[in-house]
Design a protein around this nucleic acid. Structure first.
Lengths: 204, 204, 204, 204
DNA sequence: AATGAATGAGGGTTCATTCAT
DNA sequence: GATGAATGAACCCTCATTCAT
């Protein structure tokens, strides 16, 4: 694997582990066993690394976006898709968690970041559109977009705030997906479908 | 107003404006027109300021928490309450936005932070409990808690990610509250109540 | 003596000795026995030190400028005045020697530098004006200004290029002053005065 | 043209444009479209490039020096010769402008540099000797050498300090030559010759 | 001749924090 | 309560230079 790729991979791991602010360019180089000069030969600084990671994340989401029409055929497809989506987000979670810090430390990232956010919003809106095609949600388009935003925000927040820090990443992802599906539950039920495992409702 | 309070107020404003990472102890002192030594006389460092802000936020949420039983009497009470809640969150938004960066820069904040998060979770769960008391939601307690978590995450994310950066703070807050209500809409409707203004549903 | 003054003094000595490019902020701090942080507390960087030195030099020249009308009463006054002038230049010689390097490393100095150069030019022109008042030089004003420029350039160059590097600073200054007077010799002679010690002319 | 020559040419252009200190080995290689490794194959470093440029300049001045006896036949020959001399200096102006910075950054250049300076001094002295042969200057040899030094310094300074930065290079050269001739004017006049265009003298 | 990844020392700068006054 | 000079560690980055290919 080329040095450039190794830098990106290691950076992402370190950024996810300790936050982008806590990881210096030198610590990345040290973790890789390369000299700081070499790091700067491949990327002109931390900002360029982050730009590359943002682009990678954007690309991964773009691929998901393109596959939505094909993959979301029935109500059972939403949970796996949400999981794929959350998996991408989790893989690049540092980008979402440190969003605010990055905004001020690296104004140059603003455009990449807003492009990324726009794409997520599109995915969220398309998700509800597909759901509506399967069975009318009983919402105005405006309400549907609001619901899409809430869904997206809830998903983003599940990447940022770990409610069960003790559980491992995969379990957290599955729980996040379930929580998101609960938001959609009434609409899926209205479509005569309940994708979430049935439990006894209204226990005290 | 005492110097201690002025430090907290100014810090919060600066932290909200430019992020906690971008604001140094010196810049707080400069903004206040006091010497760095004086700042350190009142607070042993940036971490202590943040701890104090976390405590203030926690206190404000505690007050809201205690009033819920009294204030949430009918379905029309939920929107104002959500607004109050979001207003507190918005006032201390730097704490939520820089959560990740703070976690690593100041491990000493971890306990205060998890206490804060727990309280928000309690509020969210109590919110749905009250709703359930008004009219059964048709959810198991576990599903209800998941819904509560989604609601909370959506609220937290609306503090972290500005979807409409051009609008002013108050407008953003109202939109956030509406978005959250959309999440609850099916349950409120099931209770024979629709707190959100009626629009023509299912337009193409 | 205050730290600020000590920084300026030491910087000037080091800059003169080894050139502005060869002296780092750290080496100044080390030479003074202070920490780099303290250096940056007093000056935001090397550029601010240089700006302050340029201002000091400008001030010294301004003082000389103001005294010219009073001090240049007769032909015997020119040599001492030239020596004073050269002494100031020699004291700040790093500014003239590294002029080009500074121009590119610190564009912020451009304005201070051009102001300084303008003042030197004014002094040179006033010098010839006074000489002309003592005895007509037989030059058009335009020719007189050209002569003033040549005189100034010759003086500046004597600060930049050491023709006799083995001799000590004071001797070099005196020789420089003599060289400059030789340029003026024909005009002083025409005024019936020969301020330079008489030697036997036109030896083989 | 061989790579070696292209390196020298491009280096000289860049050094003249932005100063020797601001131009790194890498930037020269980039400007040439070659790899840094290739640059170091031809020259062991920036110092060797500068040594080569010093040698080129020295050679050009040597050629001028040898032609002086032949070319300086009459008083009208001095201006064109001065122009040729200044043109060489202007072509290699970075060497003179950054003299001080180079001295400390590259002590290895000291010998080449002092040889160069000595040659210029010889040329300046020979110039006055030829003038004296055309018509006695009325100066002792010592005074004549001092005048030669002043002339040389004035010429060097005109390469280092741009008094009229807005005018193009050729115009600056011509003005510099005129300024130098003004220094010689009294002696040329004394020889019954005025090489500078006559203007009305002693206007107020 | 030429490439380009890699090195490592060093420079400029920031900042949380201390302490004598 | 308050000042402000001082500290020192750490960070980001540049650059001359080397070397395997």
């Amino acid at each position: 694997m080329g040095t450039r790729e190794r830098i990106l991979d290691t950076s992402l791991v370190l950024f996810n582990q300790e936050g982008t602010a806590a990881i210096s360019a030198l610590s990345i180089a040290t973790a890789l066993g390369i000299s700081p000069g070499n790091l700067y030969y491949h990327f002109r600084g931390k900002e360029e690394i982050l730009t590359a990671l943002l682009a990678e994340c954007d690309l991964a989401l773009d691929r998901l976006h393109r596959r939505m029409d094909v993959e979301l055929k029935g109500p059972m497809d939403f949970e796996p898709f949400l999981l794929s989506l959350l998996r991408v987000g989790h893989h690049f979670r540092c980008l979402f968690r440190d969003q605010e810090a990055l905004r001020f430390a690296h104004p140059g990232l603003a455009r990449s970041w807003s492009r990324l956010l726009k794409r997520i919003r599109q995915i969220s809106q398309l998700l509800l559109k597909r759901l509506n095609q399967l069975s009318p949600l009983g919402l105005t388009p405006s309400q549907r977009d609001k619901l899409a935003d809430s869904l997206m925000l809830s998903a983003l927040a599940s990447l940022c705030f770990e409610l069960e820090p003790d559980k491992d990443g995969e379990t957290q992802l599955i729980q996040s997906a379930h929580s998101l599906l609960v938001l959609l539950r009434p609409y899926l039920e209205a479509a005569g479908l309940n994708p979430v495992s049935n439990e006894q409702a209204n226990a005290p």
